[in-house]
Amino acid sequence: MTWTAASKRFGVNMERLPPNLRRFFENFQLRGQIPAMRSDLPTLPENKRLKTMEDWKFAVGDQVLIMKGKLKGTITKIVKLQPASNGFYLEDGPTKKIVIPKEYWNQTQDSHVMDYPKVVDRSYFKLLGTVEDPNTKQKKYIAANDIVLRGKYWDENYKKMLPYRCIKNKEDIRIPWPKPEPIEDDAYCTPEAKVMERTYFPTSIVLSELPADLKDSLRPPLSKSSKSKYDKYYLRGPDIKRLTKPNMPIPEHLRKLREEKELLKNKKALKLTPEIEDFIGKKVADHLNKNDNPHIKAYIEKVSGDNI
């Protein structure tokens, strides 16, 4: 056993460098890379990367509808996430031709040129869910412009609490999290049933059956971390806020503010009435039909709503 584990203390911590210097080193690094291997999306700093499933709102296995480029309209799946750039690899997504030196070839490879999947960002696709028609009982896809997370439930597939994924402004439609690929246990794994088996039954809630010196035997008593990190607990801002009682009665402006917040929360998406639509439509039609300037016509075509 060797003790040459590289300590991060002595390396350059890129996160701590000023942005211009960091960019310099990153460019320096890029020069040594094969151009084809460079990431399609820029690498993000640590604090801007998505971490939890709630942050991502998407998971591997999600069905998505491609919204841009030549593949627009294709239904495909998310195969992999790229945490460094908050990007996604899609199953039948866009690819790029890259040239690979022979040193990096696969066993089955017989050409320098190969198709390599491109990393796409969040705006490239929409998440797909399925809804059932109540009359015909036929299932059809629904694409979500945006997703909101509501409530929480125990997910048996992921073995953790997860929020429900709902379509924004149509929160009654939920898109379930995809089923992850099953993990195959190897020979040395403890079976799940064995792990969940209860072996300790306390006899009293006042007296602990654990020996008093157990803690000292678990962690080195003279280590710095065992004292500061685990023994001390300070009251922090949120704790103090929770423990102090509010001034009663609540001031009127705060009460109003709460009411307004509540109203905003329950606010429903508005809709234009056909009467107003017709009124605006006539006005726009009058204006556009009169216009015969080709430049203005081209502009209108470019920004018009039916073009998107």
């Binding site: 439509g281 726009v284 039909n289 018009s304």
Partner: peptide, 17 residues
């Protein structure tokens, strides 16, 4: 080709709608 009220309304950008 002259536009009808319905077609013209669809021409309106999302920002205005």
């Amino acid at each position: 080709m002259s536009l009808s009220a319905q077609q013209a309304f669809k021409k309106l950008p999302k920002k205005l709608v």
